[in-house]
Structures are given as C-alpha cells and as structure tokens.
Design a protein around this nucleic acid. Sequence first.
DNA 1: CCAACGTAGTCACACGTGTGCATACATGCC
DNA 2: GGCATGTATGCACACGTGTGACTACGTTGG
Lengths: 343, 343
Amino acid sequence: MQAHRTKPPTIKDIARLASVSHSTVSRALRNSSLVDPKTASRIQQIARDAGYRASAVARSLVTQETRTVGVVVTTIADPFVAEVVSGIEEVANQRCYSVFLTESKTDSELEIKAVHSFADRWVDGIIVTSSRVGSLHFKLLSETKVPVVLVNNQHSEASPHSVMIQNVEGSRQAVQHLIRLGHRRIAYIRDRFGYQSDAERLTGYRAALRHAGVTFSKELVVYGDGKAEGGMVAMRTLLGLQDPPTAVFCYNDMTALGALRCIHDERLQVPQDISLVGFDDLFIASYTHPRLTTVRQPKRQLGQLAMETLLKLMSGQDSVDSISVPAELVVRESTAPPREVSE
Amino acid sequence: MQAHRTKPPTIKDIARLASVSHSTVSRALRNSSLVDPKTASRIQQIARDAGYRASAVARSLVTQETRTVGVVVTTIADPFVAEVVSGIEEVANQRCYSVFLTESKTDSELEIKAVHSFADRWVDGIIVTSSRVGSLHFKLLSETKVPVVLVNNQHSEASPHSVMIQNVEGSRQAVQHLIRLGHRRIAYIRDRFGYQSDAERLTGYRAALRHAGVTFSKELVVYGDGKAEGGMVAMRTLLGLQDPPTAVFCYNDMTALGALRCIHDERLQVPQDISLVGFDDLFIASYTHPRLTTVRQPKRQLGQLAMETLLKLMSGQDSVDSISVPAELVVRESTAPPREVSE
DNA sequence: CCAACGTAGTCACACGTGTGCATACATGCC
DNA sequence: GGCATGTATGCACACGTGTGACTACGTTGG
C-alpha cells in the first residue's frame, strides 16, 4: 500500500523488503520451479503491494528481445492503411507485443530513417506497408537479422516475405463485370504513386478488354493520385473527351469518390449516364449515393496475416511463404448497362 | 565495409577496432569536447564503416529516458482518430520521439492495460484520446511521474492536462444556423458512447433552442452510436414520428452519413426535405451528395497540440494549462430553409 | 554415522551504454 | 628543474533484470 512517491521500486527494493536476494525475486515473479512456492507467493504479494513493475528496458537488454514491432505506413490518415494497422495491432496486442507506428509520407528517405530508428530500438520485427524501397529491406534483413514483412508492397523487386492482394484478378473481375453489362468504352483512372499495385490493376484491366475483344484506347487511361482530389480532376478530363467513356474503373474508392463528385457536379447521373467501379471497399463505399460497386480487399485481415507471418518469422521459422489474398467484386448500385443498350 | 553477419557490432567492438576504450568511443560519437577532434573523427569513420548503431535500450537504461511516447486510441480505424494520431506522429517524429500505438476498443480495462504496458516500457509520456477512465491517469501521474495528456477526454472529471474542442459553442453555432434558416423542429442524434463530448454538444443544442425561444422536445433527441450504422437507425426513428423534424443535427459526420443514407433510401431530398448538419468535418464531408454542412474540428492540430503539450511536460514544465480549441461552422449544401418557409 | 542427493537460495556475471573520477602526459611558469 | 595547469584517455561503476554456477541445509539410504 505504501506508494513510492519519488522513484518506482526496482527488483532490489522488493528483495530488501522480502529479505531475499534479487535473484530469488526475479525467479519468484517468473514462476520458476527453483523457488519454494510459499516464499514465491509471499514475494509476489510484497511486489504487488509495492506496485512493482519489472522494467521492460532492463529485461530487453539481457534477453535480447523487446516484444516490440515497428510498423511503417505512408500515412495513417488513409482509411485503407488505418484498417490494415488495426488488424496488425489486434494480433500484436493478443500476443503481448507493442507496436511502434511511423509515417513515411511516401518519402523513401523517411521510410529508411524510420526503419533505422526501429533497428536502434531493437524491435523484434518490422512491417512496412506500401513500401517504395526495394533493396534496403533485404540488406537490413541480412545484416541484422530483423525479420521484415511487406504488405501491399509497391516495388516490383520480389520480397522474401510479403502479403499482397490479387490485384490483376480483382481488376479483371471488375472490368469484366462492366463488359458484361454491355460497356465498350471503359476508362481507367490510375494512381501515379502506386507503382506496383497500379501496374497490376492496369494489367487486369487490359486483360479483361483483350479477352472481350475490346481494343485498348490510350486516351481512356488517365492519372489520378489515389485520393479524391485526383479522381475529380481525372474524371473531368474524361468527360471532356470527344467520345467520353460510359464506364470508369478507378484505382481505388477514394479516386472513385472524387470521380463521383465530378459527375454529380456536371449534372450527370450514376449509373444511368456513367457506371463507376472502385477498389478497396472502404466502409464509405456503402454510404455513397448511389452505393459504390467495388472490389473488396479484406483490409483488416491483410494486417492480421502480416502480423501472423511476422510472428512466425520471429519465432525462428524461416520457411514462410509470401501470401496472396484474393479480392472479391462487390456489386452495388453504381454500375448498370449503358444508355445505348438499355434504351 | 566489412559487415558483421552474425551480431550487430557493439560499442566495445568499435573500441577494439580503434584501439581505444569504449568510453572514448561513447564520447566521440556524442561529440563530447573531452575527446581530441582528430581521434573523434577517426572513431566516427570506423563506426560508420562497421555499420555501428548505438542500442537505444542500453542507453535508456542509463539515461532513464526512452524518447518514446505511448498513444492510446479507441480504434485507429476511425477517421477522426487517425487524423489526430497523424498530427501527434508528425510532431513526435520531428523531435526524434517514437510512438507506441495501442487500441482500447472503448474497453476501459484494455485502456488501463495499455497504459500499464507503456509504464513498463518506460515511455517518457502518454497521450490518451477519448479516454473513458477518470482517476487512473492521475494515480499513474502521481505515482510514477509519467506525464499524461488527454485529448477529447470523455470523462467529466477535470484532468490536469488536456486538449479539447469547444463542443458547446460549436454545436450552438450549428443549431443557430438551422434556426436562422427558419427551422423550428430540429432533432439531435446523440452518441451513446461519447460521454463528455455528446453531453456538451447536447448542451449547445439546447442552449441554441432556448435562446431562440424554441421549446425543447424530448422525442427529437434520439441515440446513435457515433457511426454510420447508428445514424441510419436513428434517422429512421425520426422519420417515423408523427411530426418529423425539418432539420437534423448529428453528433458527428459518420452519424450524418448514415442519416443521409436513410433519407436517400426513403426517397427524400437533402436539403429540400430535410437539412442535415454534422460535426468533425472529415474529408468525406466534402464528397457526400450534397456536400455536408458541418462543424470543423482541426483534427491534425489537436494531435499536434497534444504532443507539444506533452513535450513541455516531459521537459519539466509543470505550469502547462489545458487547451480548448474553437470549432468552426462550415456551411455547405446540406442545409437550406424548410419547405414551409421557402414556398 | 557418513555419503549421496535433492532443494532453496545466494553470488557473480552478463547485457550495452554513459559518466565521474583518476591518471598519464604535455605544456607553461617561476 | 620542480610544480601547477590543462588536456586526452582509461578505469570502474551504474542503470535493472535474468541466469548459470555454487553453497548451505535438510533428508534419505546403506
């Protein structure tokens, strides 16, 4: 009950109170079989009364592990990222790991700085989302043996351990859906920052067109920025074309949100005038007007899988494969047959 | 250039390579004036070549500080929370602090567990958002001297250091805006989880009504959950009333989003049939159809202020006041005069 | 009764870094 | 030349915890 006002009690304070050596206290608190159960419980009681809490810092120094993982994200303010991190955090917490969070702001220099900071702090493992840095992580991995898992990796260089969504197949499904509705002029609004995932979604888009015998038209592929603002601008470009598209597939839901805004502002209707498909299935896709057809990513699950992969690596298993999670088309209200067909 | 494959080099390895004691290495790397500039730069070169990085955990053990802060949030998947954390992270990073992130899932037991975990790890400071725990933080503060800053605190008990939005004034402005447009039947959709902020926004709502001589009607105050789903359900209740409201003020934008969804589904129009006001000004408020009138919280700034307050406390300043940030009404397209008046 | 043995606890060291104090050496002054 | 002064470096300890090796003691078996 007697709280130490000045400094929190150390293991030696407890040893003194219990009239034993600090070694015995250490063993008693870790339930070692080397200590008499009666004195063990006595010590535990004393420690509890004194409000003793073992220092994780000191323990880490001797055990050489911190029960800590580092997570690097572009920005946590991105709803997609936030959900992935939530999944990571959930699994980490269950296993008594604490997570460091750092934003890289899509600056590879900051990303490297963050990873170095993690290394200094002796994190047991690192998860990097949407990384743009290729070889760094391998170097780090080989030098200091810190396991690294990449989720939604944006660098083409294959990484030993990563969790990815099946972009090609997902976007293929989305575009195929539009084709089946009767669309032929289908646009794609890219993300000029999403290197790998954007390229893969473009691949799926082209594959679907080719498979249906629709010729690829360069003017129908325009650039956004993966955010709503970029979607608006890109959509305006598309609407200004001589022969505008009847359907638009967007890199992600945020882009689609901006596109939708632009279409509304031009007094056009979705899906009557233009069909719209997103990617990610953010919660918001269910609350747009009309509800957004999109390709679902199991975001939270991606985070969980990444953390579980990392746990395996940290426990010494080295035979862990990369994981590729299937995407699922979710048809809602923003897609319909084009006017020509429906009339 | 010779990379150590097995274990990262320690300060003693560098000392051996430079043929000096580890003390000299330590001083050289911290640019102490006690060491000859020439040997200092020689040592620095050797350390760089060996890829030496000082262990933060060993340093923390002796310096008694970790340059680490803990952040507890309800869930990072909430867009409001994510932006606050982004602000915290930005300032922390500038000052070379790393941040631990933990979700409490609105479970006060988990919140306490998280704070204890932080204490074990010797964090230099703690930020808790939307805390539901009252006295714990004072106890922790008085016992272990770890500075705690509360942002958007949900417990009525006044805390020594907190960052809050001016809820009463913000919601008063919002409701006053509706009254000036001619509305008399104005509903409020509450949040059954937001103890303090919800109570304050209700207070502002009632104050505005009273000031305008509008009698408070109990049936016009219904409960949501602070999320879109709850907003939908609550709105349905309001539309089912014998004399439904002509305007609805929502606890936050997410609630408003759900309400908007419900109104659309009932084939009614915003703002022609019903005016709608949110709170927070999430980015999404600019991308709904119609754009949402709302009360802006400077979310990122709240996080920055919280971190700056914490920095002051950690540096020993104890005369830090609580901060109260003004909210700002942002009028967009979801509010208009009621039908009776406009016709 | 003594040796062998198991049990409960202590001693001492390690983890990697920072720092007060002592020391060795060079320099300057009387 | 001896002494005070200053400078560059090494020694030893501290931070708080975990653990292998060792010891003291009580018990058992021959």
